[in-house]
Every structure is written in structure tokens, then in C-alpha cells.
Simulated assay, not measured.
Amino acid sequence: MAQGDGRLHGKVALITGGAGGQGRAEAILFAQEGAAVVLTDVDVKGGEEAAAAVRAAGGKAIFLRHDVCDPKAWQDCADAAVSQFGGLHVLINNAGTISRHGIKTIPLSSWNKTLEVNLTGVMLGMQVCAPAMRDAGGGSIINVSSIAGMSAHYDAAYCASKWAVRGLTKTAAIDLVDWGIRANSIHPGQIIETSFFRDGAPGHTESARRSIPMQRQGTPQECAYLALFLASDESSFITGAEIAIDGGFTAGAAIWMRSRMRDELAKAEAQG
């Protein structure tokens, strides 16, 4: 394993959704920076492969099957971090699901399931893991929201859950500050190497790329570097923040696209 600068030396991180995408990228990077990693997921095969890859490269990692909607499963994961590695300093609530239904069509069962995973799962993770983090001297919680938690999205339940995670994170930042625990949310935009993005409708990937001012999708590795900063002591005075990582989309995609349209219309008019 390529060694980093030891920015997480001596820390223990619990990463949900660790079987692939952002979770796997975070696990690999955190291990390179000296952390011991507990990866969790409902995808047992992918999770075990991710943990094995970290260990094969010289890092410390274990995998646990984990339903984030189950309080007991959360307690088992927190206990495993303490018993296997001596404590818990970082929690990344990365696990999530998507509904792909608007308000007009969403079944109640789909609404409830999406909020249970994306919102209740995050709350349970913070509630259960915070005492272990307090006992370890404090730490950092990183809740993975979305740009759908900052603007409208064609998915009623997903959008609602991600806005809620944004607010819940701010509440956690204040509620847990006396335990030395920081809480921040990150808001990824179009991350192409995830199942959420690959499973989109035809034209989804290209239309997304064209709407991003930086004219490309992001990567799980770029999100992992943001998570690394928030997990490290370098961000020790940051809590309750919401950080978009979206190539400028939420900063002003509409005005950027309008200016491009204006130029194209002006050119067409000049030509004839």
C-alpha cells in the first residue's frame, strides 16, 4: 500500500457503504493515511473484497455485514471497532438508497424505505457511535448527503432524505460538541463510478456532464480526499459545515448554462 503522510495515524474509522464507490475509496485512502478501518455494507461479497484489498496492501481493515436501519447491528459495529482496534474516532455515514419516483408516483413503501435508510440510518449511526467516539477522546462524523440536499431533484424521497441529513448534521454538531465530536455533511454531485449514477436513465450521464461548469463528473477518490480532510485534525475548527463537491453545479449551473445558451443563440442569429 502506498503510504500517505499519516494524517489519520492512530485513528479508527467506521465507514458504511464500504463495498464500493465512495466508501471503498475512503477505506483505501484512510488506511494509506494510517487509520484502521471497519467497513460495513449489506453487500457481503463486495465488502469482504474491499477489506481484503486493504489488508493485502498492508492496511488494517475488517468487514461486517450491516443493515443501517438496525440499532443492534450498529451497536455490534461500534463494539467491533473498539474490541478489534481499541476505539472509534471517525464515522462516515455513506450507505444510502434511491427511489427514482416523483411525488406523483412514489409508493408509500418506497418513501418509507428511502427515509429509513438515508435518514434514520444516519441518526442511528451517530446516536450509537457517539459514546465510543467520546470515550476515545472525540472525533469526526462525516454524513454523506448530496447536491439533492441543496436543490430540487427528480426523486421525492431521496431529495427529502438528503435535505434532512443536512439539517440533522447541524443539530449533531451542536448536540455533540461537548463530547469533542465534530459533524459535517458533504454534498457530492455527479459521481459516475457509483451504482446510483450507472443505473440512471438513458442520456443521464451525458446530460449531467454537460450541465456541470467544470464539464466533467467527479470521482469517488475526490470525495474520499474531502472526507480525509474532515476526518483529520487539519479540520479541527470545522463543525456543522455543508460542503458541496460538484464541479460548480450548485454555485451556478443555471446561470452558466444560460450564458452558454445566450452565446449559441447570438451566434445562430448572426449566421442567419
Rank of each mutant, 00 (worst) to 15 (best):
V128S: 07
Q190M: 14
A13C: 06
P213Y: 08
F196H: 05
K267R: 15
V90W: 01
G125T: 09
R216C: 13
F63Q: 02
K45A: 15
G102Q: 11
S99N: 12
G87R: 04
I255C: 08
A56E: 15
A132H: 15
I192Y: 14
G86L: 04
L8M: 11
A157Y: 12
M257C: 09
A13Y: 11
G167R: 10
G247M: 08
V12M: 06
N184W: 11
I212C: 07
Y154S: 10
G180K: 06
D263K: 14
G86M: 03
Q75I: 00
T16Y: 09
F30R: 02
G102I: 10
V37S: 02
I243C: 04
E193A: 15
F249E: 06
G21L: 08
D178N: 13
L115N: 15
S185V: 06
G180I: 09
F63R: 03
I192K: 05
G86T: 00
V117I: 15
A80C: 03
A244T: 03
H89R: 02
Q22V: 15
A95F: 12
E33S: 02
R134C: 07
R210H: 12
L230D: 09
A61S: 14
R100L: 14
S83E: 14
G23K: 07
L91D: 05
D67Y: 10
D178W: 02
A227I: 03
V82Y: 00
M123H: 14
G149Q: 05
I28C: 00
L119F: 13
G20P: 00
K45Q: 14
A164L: 10
L226R: 03
R134K: 15
D178F: 01
I243S: 03
